[in-house]
Design a protein around this nucleic acid. Structure first.
Lengths: 138, 138
DNA sequence: TTGCGTGCAAAGGTTTTGCATGGCA
DNA sequence: TGCCATGCAAAACCTTTGCACGCAA
């Protein structure tokens, strides 16, 4: 296993784009579309490879969503958003929502203390109905 | 939209197989393999269509796992396991664990009351490290 | 010069869709 | 008889892999 990494143009550009969309959830396809719409050719494989690198370097978070749907990535250098931040996905409209809640922070502590399960906040997505959809206006 | 549903052999057989594996998490491919190994031809589409029906009828739960991996289904008539039951997936060993916890039940209530988000317990999977893997013995 | 990065194309796996036929009500 | 269910094949979709060439160090 080699850890050697070059600092390349593509890597900088992908990170740059994600940092511009700070706080949003971005798919690999969206990233690619951004490049293509500017007339720049970029391979899908390159996007995925650089995203893998950025995730393993702790610059970007990856979210586990439904099978069949595309993965979401978010700019999060140094694990920002790791504590007290939940992600909720609406099963009706598909929106992915950030939720900051201090009360929920203790859930992680409870799981570890009483169930020996160490919750990975940034990786976890809660499914349910968002307020809008619950009221019947999707 | 028609809600008409026939009671067919395939539907009964799929439900029968899932009920035999009560408490386990089964993929569409496993179900299909079960039929094929008995020398019975069954189309993949049939499996998915019947699983959709069973899910919408509340007989079976579907779990949202990582993209790229197959979806998991579980026999759960009448929404059993709907309340106070969480599912935790270990990101290291891949195990999917049932977790019954009364303290966590209030999480759903809190989300609804304070954030307008209606958590879908059975659909949600918490990611993290299970006890075994956290101690370095996967 | 070394060897990772890139683009393209192809493959992989899961799930969905189209269509003709079969089976339930 | 009407209409859903089924099987097959093909397609869609997201992602990974192989390969030849390019580029960072």
């Amino acid at each position: 296993m080699s850890d050697k990494r070059y600092n390349t143009r593509r890597k900088a550009e992908v990170l740059e784009y994600l940092s511009q969309r700070r706080g949003e959830h971005v798919t690999a396809a969206e990233i690619r579309g951004h490049f293509l719409s500017r007339g720049e050719n970029i391979g899908a494989a390159t996007i995925y490879r650089q995203l893998d690198h950025l995730v393993s370097e702790g610059m970007v978070h990856k979210y586990a969503l439904d099978e069949g749907s595309a993965a979401c990535f978010e700019y999060a250098p140094g694990g920002k958003c790791a504590e007290g931040c939940f992600h909720c996905k609406c099963v009706s409209c598909g929106r992915l929502i950030h939720l900051h809640c201090h009360e929920l922070q203790q859930v992680g502590g409870h799981l570890a203390a009483h169930h020996g399960f160490h919750l990975d906040f940034p990786r976890t997505v809660l499914y349910g109905l968002c307020g809008s959809c619950a009221e019947g206006r999707p």
